[in-house]
Design a protein around this nucleic acid. Structure first.
Length: 845
RNA sequence: GCUGCUGUAGCUCAGUGGUAGAGCGCAUCCUUGGUAAGGCUGAGGUCGAGAGUUCAAUUCUCUCCAGCAGCACCA
């Protein structure tokens, strides 16, 4: 009755067209069904879909299809994070326009995604480089400006000399640009900022409600926001000035033996102006480097300024003031009190410069004069050697000191954040133009910085731009920036900075929910769809994108545009797809080979070109430099979409890395064919009941539903293997036919093309994509027989198959009646019998 | 250094206070009109190490070891 093999090269395209033509995956906002918004982080259109995208989108797709089958109206959209520097780099290298390059890439990638059969609502597709999209973004930016959440200030910025742009703090890694890897320079520029710090407390508090976010991500955001409480206070200095410091441990104030300021602290600069020696030290600190390795080995260094500071609570003491390399200017006030006894950094510093190490906290059961064991003691204890603080707990002492500082007026309790306002200015072409106009020279006689009037939005990018030299083409464009001031009509200049692309991705999920022409989104439709029920993406976005999106949602909430505060109810961060590497030493260098250049045997790998052996390297993240990449298009062409999807879901738990292997995809291909053969065995003439198989079918149905809801796709896959095995072994019966029909629906979210083909073959109504998830009979979930273990002295000697719920006494009698038990007892006296109903009998002799 | 995650078959992973499992791989054999194959059978495990609780620990508790990831002179 059936073809003997499933042919994806025929079936895949046929069903993909069928879904398109029926508009199967178009979300209906008017639907009365419960809604479900499933979203994967939209891709940057680099030109090719990466296998990591395939894994990410397959997970979301299985969930989306499953939700449809369980009666939900599903919104599962896709779009393009289309602004950014690669397009400009391509423009410079290949002399193509960033827009054209991006459009071509999008067309390519969209075709690739379609070939994998994702259940996406393509009617809502957009790219962030569409003027309609970024025009609305400009309007939102003006809204936030009017609400006081956007401001401009001169700020020292991280300047990437290769990309010729400003980088956010988060984009500087170990002092180098995150993209270019170039050493970052400090420059002062007028920059646009978003007031994310206004929401610092709320963003932090909100984390505790995000129960369906990975603990790891919440922790990373918490650390990033970095809230700390302490005492801000000032020292009176011997040069007549005052020095502000911040400490989270004011309880240890009597243990202070020095004060230290950062090398770029105003006081340090002041000292350096008068002392060549100090200047030399400041220069040394700046060259000091900030990489992890350097910090690791980093010795604490200081320069004694000769200035002294008066201890605020013990006027008999003056503390030396140092410039120190371990004090950071951009945290707190850039100056600290050094308490060597109870801070490891201060301890190392004091040891080096022979400063007193005072004990002011004594741990439980230790002496007030106990010596230090070569390191600082940062732990809890009672306060000692601190005058009237003596005997207090650390917490009490902190409160007492803060209270006294406030009462005496030399300091106050203070909360310090690590989080800074978000600098969004980028000196690039391929981004959203910032909708402002500069009238005159900011001297005050002219209008200054003026918002672009709403009716002139969007401010679009000029098409005729020149990328032959580095820097910002908007800046040097002949006409684009020259405009009339909207207020006075005089000559004025457009802002030539564009927005950080993280702004684009901070609200795209709202635009997916609704896309009116005349405004960014329709609040009512947003209210219907949001929050995103399940968001899936890479953990590399744990801080930046996710924090910014949370911030934008809150900001739009504050100005009354939307009701939600948290955009993503559940977050899932999937693991990477990895692959072993193949390499060989040649001419003193390691040369890598791509998987398709290799023929892989059980224990070795041979290079197809010359038949010689190559070294099999570790299984690592796929990267171009190691050549351990596989091309989704090629494998889909070879094995069909369903086998590739199946591989993406099987083996590894989704949050962990998935090692790609040739053997693995071959196995998936075979299972697709095995399932196809099984589905061909539907026999509507078969009669008779197979209770055990019925149970297995219903148990599997229930378990897979749970697995998919929990995104445990690898477990669902394992259960389908089991079910296939059980059906294979079962004799023909009505139950078996039913099991096969059920299994077709169970695989539908994962192998949709195969499932449609089988569904059609067996006369299923409509598309299986619209079919309901199989019903579960709760009565069939429980077994009525159980296998009991019989142990003698803790060792298994026999098993018994008995009715479920059999009484203890009967179990004991049955166990003692066993020959095997009697033999292993060998006539020994029975001391005790432990009976656990439905589990085991243990006879202790 | 701090935090988190992970250690179960050759590989990738399920699982459980009471009989240790799946897929792939491997070995033997069968079929060659399911053939870019299909099937039978089998080998393979100190459940990371140690201690504790228990009649019974791979599972619970504690300590340690290893691997991976993130953060890191944040006062």
């Amino acid at each position: 009755m059936t073809d003997t093999r499933f042919d994806p090269s025929q079936a895949d395209g046929r069903w993909q067209r069928a879904w398109d033509e029926a508009g199967t995956f178009t979300a209906d906002t008017g639907s009365a069904k419960p809604k479900s918004y499933v979203l994967e982080m939209f891709p940057y259109p680099s030109g090719r879909i990466h296998i990591g995208h395939v894994r990410n989108y397959t997970m979301g797709d299985v969930l989306a299809r499953y939700k449809r089958m369980t009666g939900h109206e599903v919104l599962h959209p896709m779009g393009w994070d289309a602004f950014g520097m690669p397009a400009e780099n391509a423009a410079m290298e290949k002399n193509v326009h960033p827009g054209g390059w991006t459009r071509d890439n999008i067309a390519n990638m969209k075709a690739q995604l379609k070939r994998i059969g994702f259940a996406l609502d393509w009617t809502r597709e957009f790219a962030t480089c569409d003027p309609e999209y970024y025009g609305h973004e400009q309007a939102l930016f003006l809204d936030l400006y009017e609400a006081g959440l956007v401001y401009r200030k001169q700020a020292q910025v991280n300047w990437d000399p290769v990309d010729m742009t400003v980088l956010a703090n988060e984009q500087v890694i170990d002092g180098k640009g995150w993209r270019s890897g170039a050493e970052v320079e400090k420059r002062k520029l007028n920059q646009w900022f978003l007031k994310i710090t206004d929401f610092a407390d709320d963003l932090l508090d909100g984390l505790s409600d995000l129960e369906n976010w990975p603990e790891k991500v919440r922790l990373m955001q918490e650390n990033w926001i970095g809230k700390s409480r302490g005492l801000g206070f000032s020292f009176d200095l011997s040069n007549g000035e005052r020095l502000q410091v911040y400490s989270t441990r004011p309880d240890t104030i009597f243990g202070a033996s020095f004060v230290a300021v950062a090398a770029d602290h105003p006081l340090a600069r002041c000292v350096a102006e008068e002392s060549a020696e100090a200047q030399a030290f400041v220069d040394l600190c700046k060259r000091g480097g900030t990489t992890a390795a350097e910090i690791e080995a980093g010795e604490k260094l200081g320069f004694d300024t000769g200035i002294t500071a008066l201890h605020p609570m013990d006027k008999s003491r003056r503390l030396p003031v140092y410039i120190a390399n371990f004090v950071l200017m951009d945290y707190g006030t850039g100056a600290v009190m050094g308490v060597p006894g109870h801070d490891q950094r201060d301890f190392e510093f004091a040891t080096k410069y022979n400063l007193p190490v005072l004990r002011v906290v004594a741990a439980e059961g230790t002496d007030a004069d106990a010596p230090f064991a070569g390191e600082a003691e940062a732990g809890d204890g009672r306060i000692v050697n601190s005058g009237k603080l003596d005997g207090m707990s650390v917490d009490d002492a902190i409160r007492t000191v803060i209270n006294q500082a406030e009462a005496d007026g030399w300091g106050e309790g203070k909360t310090v954040w690590r989080l800074r306002d978000w600098g969004v200015s980028r000196q690039r072409y391929w981004g959203t133009p910032i909708p402002f106009i500069h009238c005159g020279d900011d001297s005050g006689d002219t209008c200054g910085v003026v918002p672009v009037p709403r009716d002139q939005l969007p401010v679009t990018l000029p098409e005729d731009v020149d990328f032959s030299v580095p820097g910002n083409p908007l800046e040097r464009h002949a006409t684009w920036k020259h405009v009339a001031c909207p207020q006075c009509g005089g000559e004025a200049m457009r802002e030539t900075d564009t927005l950080d692309t993280f702004v684009d991705s901070s609200w795209y999920f709202l635009r997916f929910a609704s896309q009116p022409d005349n405004r960014p989104f329709d609040p009512e439709e947003v209210a219907k769809w949001l929050p995103v029920e399940q968001y899936i993406g890479g953990v590399e976005h744990a801080i930046l994108h996710l924090l910014y999106a949370r911030f934008w949602t809150r900001a739009l909430n504050r100005i009354g545009m939307i009701d939600v505060k948290e955009p993503f109810a559940s977050l899932f961060t999937q693991g990477m797809v990895t692959h072993e590497t193949y390499s060989r030493m040649a001419g003193g260098k390691t040369v890598y080979y791509a998987p398709d250049e290799i023929s892989r045997e059980a224990k070795r790998a041979l290079l197809s070109a010359d038949g010689g052996e190559v070294e099999i390297g570790r299984v690592i993240k796929m990267s171009k430099s190691k050549k351990n990449v596989v091309d989704p298009d090629a494998i889909v062409a070879q094995y069909g979409a369903d086998a590739v999807r199946w591989f993406m879901l099987s083996d590894s738990p989704p949050e962990r890395d998935l090692p790609w292997s040739e053997a693995g995809i071959e196995g998936c291909w075979r299972f697709v064919q095995r399932a196809w053969r099984l589905f061909g065995q539907v026999d509507d003439d078969a009669t008779g009941e197979d209770k055990a198989l019925d149970r297995k079918t219903h148990q599997t149905t229930a378990a897979i539903a749970d697995d998919i809801e929990a995104l445990s796709f690898n477990k669902a896959v394992a259960r389908l293997y089991e079910l296939a095995g059980a059906i294979d072994k079962a004799a023909p019966s009505a139950s078996r036919t039913q099991a096969i029909r059920t299994m077709i629906r169970l695989v539908a979210p994962m192998m949709p093309h195969l499932a449609e083909e089988a569904w059609a073959m067996h006369g299923g109504e409509g598309l299986i994509a619209d079919a309901p998830w199989p019903k579960v009979d709760p009565a069939l979930l429980v077994e009525d027989e159980v296998t009991i273990a019989v142990q003698v002295k803790g060792k298994l000697r026999d098993t018994l198959t008995v009715a479920k719920g059999l009484a203890k006494e009967e179990l004991e009698a049955l166990a003692l009646a066993s020959d095997k038990v009697q033999r292993s007892l060998g006539g020994a006296e029975i001391r005790k019998v432990i009976v656990v109903p439905d589990r085991l009998v243990n006879i202790v002799a």
